[in-house]
Design a protein around this nucleic acid. Structure first.
Length: 399
RNA sequence: GGAGAGGUACCCAAGUGGCCAAAGGGGGCAGACUGUAAAUCUGCUGGCUUACGUCUUCGGAGGUUCGAAUCCUCCCCUCUCCA
């Protein structure tokens, strides 16, 4: 592909490419570039936010470049301070190992296995001695560290910064030297780290890498970045139904952003279609939901999720096949509804009080009828359809 | 090392002896409405209880008081300024 075309593909959706001219130069020289992307196996699951750079990495693979995936098993134990408003907890080795394994499985749902090098950064970092660490520390200054947005903010607002957190960017930058990266991908919160690597590479006599900075994907609330701790994430290992449903819950504005960052669909055409009215926003969103569900859970599951969604919400019916079943013995059945709801797994009723509130709000239906009376009489041998709100339903068989 | 400020529910944040299960915002949940689980509007959002009510909760441990998130003592943690 022509250099200009490659540049267009690479730059789509990016916040910044630093420096863009160097990227053009590297592309012109031909050959396969080494594109580094580091992940810290801190949580066992990755979500769509993590797949923004992965999607970009995949695009680069498709252009013929090599993905150099760094599993930050060593750095994970430090805790990346990037984008953090508080110190990240340090993890123990076993947790990191376990997370690293699931990570790889999930990552390959996006990447092309054929063109990937995988490295664990403990391979070279675990062996660094104190002298090497000090030398590394001498490569930058405290003032420069404090220029970093998240550090500056925490410092200003009086939130703790551990000294070890200063080491993190240096170690990550050192990884780039080890793997001789030509390009590194990262979120905006990684900008500093990506640039620091350039400095270390130059000091090591290498050509500095180009930093491709990608935006942080907002979560389902459309405001804060996607993160597990904020509960606004769409995880790649969730079921097709969940992925589909959660994507449908994002706003129309967010839909375009997801299209840009998570797919290779033609954005200009989509926008034009939406503006002219030839493309219905809901259809566009359903297509997006299906693309993403298919990517992580397979095409069949995604198609099923779509059909289920249409049936459930547009025809206002519940998809009979996907409702989980529960069996409770008549004798174990609480005779009051809130307690009963709580006793059934899968309804997500956390406490009796929670159940009581839901009943009061008219959210509970048994066999389609709204039940407001807390007294219930269920008979043995009968199967009841119990619904809480629009989303939660369980088929309860009384034995 | 010295001086000062602070630690409140899922998050941010108000409250400085009783009217505090604790304002407000965010998030979450529910209802209405809708092309959607969008937007908007309304309600709810510690546990137990049919209810009256009751129990636990404001960094930790003690104490004062009829009564403490609020006052005192010690401890832990964070920040600022000075060294």
């Amino acid at each position: 592909m022509e250099v200009d075309q490659q540049l267009d593909v690479i730059c789509r959706g990016t916040v910044d490419v630093i420096p863009r001219e160097e990227l053009a130069e590297k592309l012109k020289s031909g050959g396969s570039l080494r594109v580094k992307f580091g992940v810290d196996p801190t949580a066992p699951d990755i979500h769509l936010g993590h797949t923004v750079p992965l999607t970009k990495l995949r695009q680069l693979q498709d252009l013929g470049h090599t993905a150099v995936l760094i599993i930050g098993d060593f750095t994970a134990r430090i805790g990346d301070p990037s984008g953090r408003s508080a110190t990240r907890p340090q993890l123990d080795e076993a947790a990191v190992r376990a997370a690293a394994e699931t990570y790889q499985d999930q990552v390959f749902k996006v990447l092309d296995r054929q063109r990937v090098e995988v490295h664990y950064n403990s391979t070279w970092l675990a062996g660094l001695d104190a002298q090497a660490m000090v030398r590394l520390g001498a490569q930058t200054t405290v003032a420069r560290m404090l220029e970093r947005d998240d550090f500056a903010k925490r410092y200003r607002e009086g939130v703790a910064i551990g000294v070890h957190e200063f080491l993190y960017p240096l170690l990550q930058a050192h990884d780039s030297v080890e793997v001789r990266a030509d390009i590194e991908l990262g979120g905006t919160d990684q900008t500093f780290n990506l640039l620091l690597a350039r400095q270390l590479q130059k000091a090591a006599g290498q050509a500095p890498q180009v930093a491709v900075v990608l935006p942080l994907l907002e979560g389902t609330d459309g405001v804060q970045k996607m993160s597990k701790s904020l509960g606004n994430q769409i995880g790649v290992s969730e079921t097709a139904e969940e992925i589909f449903g959660k994507v449908m819950s994002i706003s129309d504005d967010m839909m375009l952003r997801y299209y840009e960052l998570l797919t290779t669909e033609d954005l200009a055409a989509l926008r034009a279609g939406l503006d002219s009215g030839s493309q219905h926003p809901m259809e566009a969103k359903k297509n997006l939901a299906e693309i993403l569900a298919a990517r992580f859970q397979g095409g069949d599951a995604a198609a099923g999720a779509r059909a289920g969604f249409e049936q459930r919400f547009q025809k206002r019916e519940i998809d009979a096949d996907s409702i989980p079943e529960a069996v409770l013995a008549r004798a174990d059945l609480p005779d009051r509804l809130p307690q009963l709801l709580r006793a059934i797994d899968g309804l997500g009723v956390a406490s009796n009080s929670d159940g009581r509130r839901l009943v009061k709000q008219g959210a509970v239906r048994i066999d389609g009828e709204v039940v407001r009376d807390e007294e219930v009489e269920l008979s043995a041998g009968v199967t009841y359809l119990i619904q809480v709100g629009k989303r939660r339903a369980v088929r309860l068989r009384v034995s």
